[in-house]
């Protein structure tokens, strides 16, 4: 996979009003491949959002460097090219809505870039189709459900035709239905449209959708690997104050009770299958 985002020796230091300094991101060396799906997990204040804001030059390195598609974020001449390649979707969809109908909201970005009307139309239609909001295109955004509002924010980001979208806890304010809608869309954008996805989340079952998980603690990336490998490090995660996805957590507790289910189980189907095998082993005459 060709590298898409690269950071080398990245530090981000915030200066507080009283003169104290806080290094929110420390010595991060990271490569995210084009088309990859990466989940970023870690406690509140561990630097996830700060790191992610470097991916589209919303923040610039205090030291070290960040390249997006080969463009250094430190060069002001690259700013708009980088922003066009990497979109952002934040936690609260309410703060991201600017227009009075769904399609006008999606058109806001392309219109600001003064694209030809036919091109704007095409981009808006494509973006709404990708998130499944075509039927709502003339609806006022305030009539949408929370999940749909967040999908609208995703469509707004897609209208810029980015290569990558950074989702910063996109589901944490949504109800279960909204969560499913948004997660299904993110998965589809990655697998079908080839979008590079960076997903920041506190919900471990959402992180299992990624190809690779990065765990942060106090500004550093302290753990990484595919979901099974990361969630097999139960003690390390507990030290970091992170939890296991629900089924992995129950599986861990079952092992403590002497039930031999293997580590690395992440889903309800996997755990049910493992337990059925146990149950059969228990009752089949031998």
């Amino acid at each position: 996979m060709a590298p898409f985002i690269e950071t080398r020796g990245l530090y981000h230091v915030f200066r507080l009003e009283d003169g104290r300094q806080i290094a929110a991101v420390r010595a991060v060396d990271l490569t995210i491949g084009r088309g990859e799906f990466v989940a970023l997990i870690g406690p509140n204040g561990s630097g996830k959002s700060t790191l992610a804001r470097h991916f589209n030059a919303l923040l610039l390195p205090t030291s070290g460097s960040v390249w997006v598609d080969g463009l250094s974020t430190a060069d002001p001449a690259n700013l708009w090219r980088i922003r066009r390649r990497v979109g952002m979707v934040f936690q609260n969809p309410e703060n991201q809505i600017v227009a009075s109908t769904v399609e006008e909201d999606v058109a806001f970005g392309p219109e600001n870039r003064a694209l030809p009307p036919a091109e704007i139309r095409q981009r808006v239609d494509d973006a709404l189709a990708l998130v499944g909001l075509r039927d709502q295109r003339t609806t006022p955004p305030q009539m949408l459900s929370g999940g749909q509002k967040q999908l609208l924010a995703v469509a707004g980001a897609l209208a810029a035709r980015p290569d990558c979208i950074v989702f910063d806890e996109p589901t944490s304010m949504l109800d279960p239905r909204g969560r499913h809608q948004v997660m299904d869309t993110i998965r589809r954008l990655n697998s079908e449209a080839g979008l590079t996805v960076v997903l920041i989340t506190q919900a471990m079952e959402e992180a299992t959708a990624a190809r690779r998980i990065l765990a942060m603690d106090r500004g550093r990336i302290v753990l990484q690997g595919d979901p099974r490998a990361v969630f097999a490090q139960e003690e390390r995660l507990a030290d970091l104050g992170l939890e296991l996805p629900p089924m992995a957590d129950i599986a861990r507790r079952l092992r403590q009770h002497g039930v031999p289910v293997s580590p690395g189980i992440l889903s309800l189907t996997e755990l049910t299958r493992a337990l059925e095998a146990e149950l059969r082993a228990g009752v089949t005459p031998c």
Partner: peptide, 17 residues
């Protein structure tokens, strides 16, 4: 609760055996 569910399943498997 996850701890209750695990204990309950472990108990049922044990009883089955």
């Amino acid at each position: 609760l996850p701890e209750e569910a695990a204990a309950e399943i472990a108990r049922a498997l044990e009883a089955g055996t």
